[in-house]
Design a protein around this nucleic acid. Structure first.
Lengths: 191, 191
DNA sequence: TCGCACATGTAACGTGTTACATGATTCA
DNA sequence: TGAATCATGTAACACGTTACATGTGCGA
């Protein structure tokens, strides 16, 4: 252990794990896809890549694609291991408190470590469980705010409750699409 | 202009605008309510309060509540003005991209500047509008990811879509609870 | 009197942001 | 030939995190 990468760093390892990428590629991904949450400024990406290489989570090699030379990054074994540990960790209430968007980011990356049905299902289960506890907290808070003269703070909590409900619906949807029906009793052999 | 406070700083101004608070009070709020997203560590709060006082967004006064002495903070006129500008700004697509949680945080604070029905309605309208555009982007992205061999990235986008739907439902709910039915043609006099 | 809650700070550190800077290649 | 895109950096700065530090008042 003693890893603890930043979210940006995990994203860099996760993306390069799927295929070797240059800093410029990553920049492009951050500005065109839903990874907008990460800054696409070179001032964040390039230093992070250097950092990860120095810490031996990534390796790079100068390569000539067509005519230009680009420095392509890919994860080392240690990098893959750190990524795996991050992706396979169960979703906790604390994670939801810190930043509700990291669970789904982790989910999206599960393919980059070739995770099969079992870890995917385990991930969704822990997500569901954490959401359940989160929902309890929110309902309690909403009740406490019931006396508040201004309705808006309580409505803000109701917003959170609606979000949690949406996330739960999505888990059902995802399990269905992935053929992970929770009622099934069949043993699984994949992964 | 030339304000641009951090999210933490806006939260500090917004909370003290409702009633004068000490650094310790704010710390408590951050660790017990749904404002957990802000660190409750003194290393972030006290420096931020000093900063805001130096920049004349807050004033403080040593006061003896019971026996202890506490430094109570409250916003200056400039502080209230900055808060007002922040709260009354329409929700934009960019804001949703940067951090989907700021709109609802701003909404929750609308009472602290005594915002009435009209700005509240305007806020929700802009929110709805921004979400609509966001939804279009997400649907397009989901379609692009349809070809992807791994279903999980596309499912991650569907998660975003579910979240947006939940937010829209909440807007309807909020408008109803606040008596801001969008079908109503009545002119309003408040605020 | 022992520990907990109250109450406020400081210092080192790492990281993201913004702005600046450079040069090659491609396309109109 | 000029502009846009490709491609990679650096430097100053501000901020949040973590850890350390100090002291008071209250209740068991």
């Amino acid at each position: 252990m003693e890893s603890a990468l930043t979210l940006l760093e995990y994203a860099l390892v996760g993306l390069t794990a799927q295929e070797p990428l240059s800093g410029y590629d990553l920049k492009k991904i951050f500005e065109t896809t839903e990874m907008r949450q990460f800054s696409s400024s070179p001032g964040s990406i390039y230093p992070a890549l250097r950092r990860l290489e120095k810490r031996a989570f990534l390796t790079s090699s100068e390569e000539a694609t067509g005519d230009r030379t680009r420095r392509l990054y890919r994860p080392t074994e240690a990098g893959k291991e750190a990524l795996r540990a991050w992706l396979l960790a169960p979703v906790t209430l604390e994670e939801l408190h810190d930043d509700g968007r990291t669970p789904i980011l982790r989910f999206a990356f599960l393919g980059s470590i070739g995770a099969g049905r079992k870890p995917t299902r385990a991930f969704l289960e822990s997500y569901r469980e954490a959401l359940g506890r989160y929902l309890e907290d929110l309902r309690e808070l909403a009740e406490q705010l019931g006396e508040h003269p201004d309705a808006r703070p309580r409505l803000a909590i109701l917003h959170g409750i609606e979000q949690v409900k949406g996330q739960r619906r999505w888990i059902d949807l995802a399990e269905e699409e992935l053929g992970l029906a929770q009622t099934s009793m069949m043993k699984e052999g994949s992964e």
